[in-house]
Amino acid sequence: MTAATAELLTVREVMARLRLGRSKVYDLIRSHRLMSIKIDGARRIPVDAVQDFILQQMEEAA
């Protein structure tokens, strides 16, 4: 998937996918562990960034 066709998720959608609270998702964004962008004040997270975060967590746990 290219950047031009990347699917963007809301914080609420990421919360549901990762089963985490709002504060934790924003903490991951602030600490640069989860990449996000802002579009006119709206925070969006690429699906690829969520998948990368999950893979990174799995590698660290192994």
Rank of each mutant, 00 (worst) to 15 (best):
S36C: 06
G41T: 09
L8D: 07
R33K: 12
G41K: 06
A4E: 07
V11S: 03
A16S: 12
T10P: 02
A42I: 09
T5V: 03
R44I: 02
P46H: 02
V47G: 06
Q51E: 14
K38E: 15
R30Q: 12
R12E: 08
K24I: 06
M58Q: 15
L34W: 00
F53S: 04
S23F: 13
R44S: 05
V50W: 02
L9K: 04
V11W: 01
L55V: 07
Q56M: 14
V47S: 09
I54W: 03
S36G: 00
H32E: 14
S31M: 06
V11C: 03
V11K: 02
L55W: 15
M58G: 14
Q57D: 06
M1L: 06
R17Y: 09
L28I: 08
E13I: 02
I54D: 08
R17I: 14
S31G: 05
K24P: 04
V25L: 07
M15H: 05
R22Y: 00
I54V: 15
S36E: 01
A16W: 14
S36R: 06
E59C: 12
S36M: 04
A4W: 03
I29Q: 02
H32Y: 11
I29T: 05
V14M: 03
S31N: 10
G41I: 01
A49Y: 00
T5P: 02
V47Y: 06
M1G: 10
D40T: 03
D48W: 14
L20K: 14
L20A: 12
L28E: 09
A4K: 12
V11Q: 01
G21Q: 07
R43E: 02
V11D: 13
Q57L: 13
A4Y: 01
A61E: 08
A6K: 05
A62G: 10
T10D: 04
L55T: 11
I29F: 02
V47T: 07
A62Q: 11
R30H: 13
K24Q: 05
G41E: 00
D27A: 11
A62K: 07
A61D: 11
E59W: 14
A4V: 10
Q51N: 10
D27S: 12
Q57S: 13
D27K: 13
A42C: 11
E59M: 11
M58T: 15
V11A: 02
D52Q: 05
D52I: 01
E13N: 03
R43I: 08
F53A: 02
T5D: 09
M35R: 15
I54S: 03
G41L: 07
M15P: 01
L9V: 00
M15G: 01
F53P: 04
A61R: 15
R33M: 10
L18S: 02
E60L: 14
T5W: 01
Q57P: 10
E7G: 11
Q56N: 15
R43H: 03
I37N: 00
V25C: 06
E60H: 13
F53E: 05
L34G: 04
R30T: 13
L20P: 09
Y26I: 08
A16G: 13
A62D: 11
K38Q: 15
